[in-house]
Nucleic acid binder design. Structure first.
Lengths: 231, 231
DNA sequence: GATTGACTCGTACAACGTACGATGCGATTT
DNA sequence: AAATCGCATCGTACGTTGTACGAGTCAATC
């Protein structure tokens, strides 16, 4: 979309924020990207993807709707920033990467999944390409650990992507089928109708109660078994 | 959203379509869900998710915008139907499921991925929960093959979900980073900026040229090695 | 004091999904 | 034949959204 690589130097680059500048009546602490993103995450947590509207976001910030556009190009960017902000990774408890690479990978990927499950809207935003620094940081860390664990240079990209794919797939599936009780009942009924067309699904209660966490870990184990050469 | 399970019997259930009923001047073949969905897929292929608007869809069909709403509840449903329609599976060339379960699974999952890559918008629609008959059919088939291959009942759901997660994750990643040449150049430049923060990504050219297809197959192999008990 | 640049916001507009009700038409009933 | 009914189409209109535009405020600098 923004293909033409012109200068387009409309963006502020950096706000000096010299004084508090009381601005209203001494209450609202002035706009900033950080505050905008944090409030956007709040709003998304509370009302989902559809609940994030520029006017509402501005309201929560005690600002006019159009004020946001000085800090942000458009709504898309708010989504991108919110997504990346939720994926920050503070690293494993100790520095054990080299010795226990498997533990390090597990920790990072489970934290990844947990972070996204804490903010279910994040999964549905993932397919829209937004490579923020936190996401890149996770990919970088993943590559570094795998590389240290003995994965050959030629296999590195494949290994990184396999794990990434698995994690985001699992997260998307999980948030997608994390039905409320009402939905469960409805699904149950809808499926009962079709039990003769989908007997296996019906018998294993695939959509109703799967052990998501156990399945995630087990699949991850298998993947790692294959990706990293046994020593 | 549509939680209240009232009767809401507004939907037509079945159109008899008794006569061609020349309707206009003998040209347009009258509206139907099938035609609406097929045209929606065309439009999505041509212009992406953002390009599908009810008015435009109606235009392409030679109909008024509001005419669509007799066949369809809302735009969401158009998305759901388009997604499912693209995921139809005609089955493996021969009937070899029992003997060559690995081949059968590979065939189905690679076809799955290929179908979605042929319609890149489909990946971004997946996280919105829409279990059409074709998707359910694929899950059912997957379960049946795995079960026949010797996966224990207790492990079945986990195995199904692991494979499903992997496939949709891989597809989403692939469509997400399938950059045009312009985007590639832009990404290259943006990354050059950060090469000291992400040296591993930079060195392995992770975002620029990965062997997507090879990585997909390899990871799938590893998953299957783990999921299905070796005989 | 004048100018500048960072920042805010009220107004306005175009585009969208779709509610509502009118209309046409074939089949059925009277 | 006339009246009725159900399927199907569509024009108009409304509310909501993202955001373009330009005017406004205030502190820092000249």
């Amino acid at each position: 979309m923004a293909a033409k690589g012109g200068p387009q130097d409309k963006r502020p680059q950096r706000r000096a924020r010299s004084l508090p500048s009381m601005q209203q009546a001494g209450s609202e602490p002035a706009l900033s990207i950080e505050r905008i993103v944090a409030t956007a995450v709040e709003l998304l947590d509370a009302e989902g993807v559809g609940g994030l509207k520029m006017r509402r976001l501005a309201d929560r910030l005690g600002a006019g709707a159009m004020s946001l556009y000085w800090h942000v190009d458009n709504k898309e960017e708010v989504f991108d920033l919110a997504l990346d902000s939720v994926l920050e990774y503070r690293g494993p408890p100790q520095r054990i990467e080299a010795a226990d690479w498997r533990g390090a990978i597990f920790h990072m990927l489970e934290d990844w999944r947990a972070s996204m499950l804490r903010h279910p809207w994040s999964a549905s935003l993932l397919p829209r390409r937004a490579l923020g620094p936190n996401i890149l940081g996770r990919l970088e860390l993943l590559g570094r650990i795998l590389s240290g664990a003995g994965v050959a240079e030629a296999d590195l990209n494949g290994a990184i992507w396999s794990l990434w794919n698995y994690v985001i797939g699992a997260t998307i599936t999980r948030t997608n089928f994390d039905l409320s009780d009402d939905d469960m009942a409805a699904a149950q009924q809808r499926l009962a109708h079709l039990s003769e067309k989908y007997p296996t699904i019906e018998r294993s209660r695939l959509l109703l109660d799967s052990d998501w966490d156990g399945a995630f870990r087990k699949g991850l184990d298998f993947l790692l078994d294959g990706l990293v050469p046994r020593l």
